[in-house]
Nucleic acid binder design. Structure first.
Lengths: 169, 169
DNA sequence: AATGAAATCGACCAGCA
DNA sequence: TGCTGGTCGATTTCATT
């Protein structure tokens, strides 16, 4: 099946995706009732969406607090500008234990990393590991006091004008 | 069943969680083979982990690029300090269409938001919506050129010293 | 692209260590 | 509490439209 590209859905696909993004732990029957489609049809569409890469996977959403991982920090990382190494540095940052997200950004800061650990000792280790990476110049961290919204979801961002652009192709 | 708290796992639980966090689209039989446990036992443990809240849910991981959502920005939001409204402001930020993550942080910046849209027009709308929120003082955005690591996962952060603290209780 | 029937797999229960 | 084995119901697959 073809790779994922923009605009390969109909309204039914979008509704189906909206149902399952937040909770895939539902029976085909529930979806069947909700969308007025036979169970087989739901299954058929789900398969297509998986094979086309729209559904990248099915994952378990774990509670960090159950593991004592309740300390989060956002770290800005500036690198020395000998161009070309940036990708490697990003990969190294992502490999540091406790680092959950890494973004390469425009501007003077270069990288933003979000990490999650159990306590200050581990947070210090994370930052030390970052500073130890070849090419890292400076870091600046802020503690997160409240995660108002994490677990990024796509479908809430797909609405109105976004959907319009998707369906008109 | 009791609520999630730290330290309610054994090594088998941790291995099981490591298997399913990245890919829950596997059969019980595969897990059974991998962990040398009967299918019923796997099912039993999965149920416990769900009921105790360690597994918060099962979600479909969608590819943003398939929806044309390939523009990401990190926005720092400073608020006017009339104390008490901060939670509301955070909720309002999270409700803006296109905003995926919102963190309330220590320091002079107050909030960090990560948003994902299709194009610059939509990005402008997001930022306008943020500025329009009562109590928001100033915003500063950077474009993300590369998402080196997103889709935060917990289990990679649970290792060595973290696991040690979990199992010794 | 969707259906219905047949084969396969997962959910649940009673009982056991 | 943690696990087993078996039963029933759900899901996957496939021939057909």
């Amino acid at each position: 099946m073809a790779q994922a590209k923009v605009g390969d859905f109909d309204e039914m696909d979008l509704e189906l995706l909206r149902c399952i993004e937040a909770d895939f732990d539902v029976s085909l029957e529930t979806l069947s009732d909700e969308l007025d489609l036979s169970k087989s049809a739901i299954h058929y569409r789900l398969n297509n969406l998986k094979e086309s890469g729209v559904i990248r996977g099915v994952t378990a959403d774990l509670d960090p607090v159950s593991f004592g991982l309740d300390m989060v920090a956002i770290t800005e990382v500036a690198v020395t500008h000998e161009q070309g190494y940036s990708e490697d540095i990003g990969t190294s940052l992502a490999a540091v234990e406790g680092v959950e997200q890494v973004y390469y950004t425009m501007g003077d800061v270069d990288f933003v990393a979000i990490s999650r650990v159990q306590d200050r000792t581990q947070m210090n280790e994370v930052i030390e590991d970052m500073v130890a990476i070849d090419g890292v110049n400076e870091t600046s961290s802020r503690f997160v006091m409240d995660e108002i919204k994490s677990d990024p979801q796509i479908m809430p961002s797909v609405s109105d004008d976004v959907e319009a652009q998707l369906l008109e192709e």
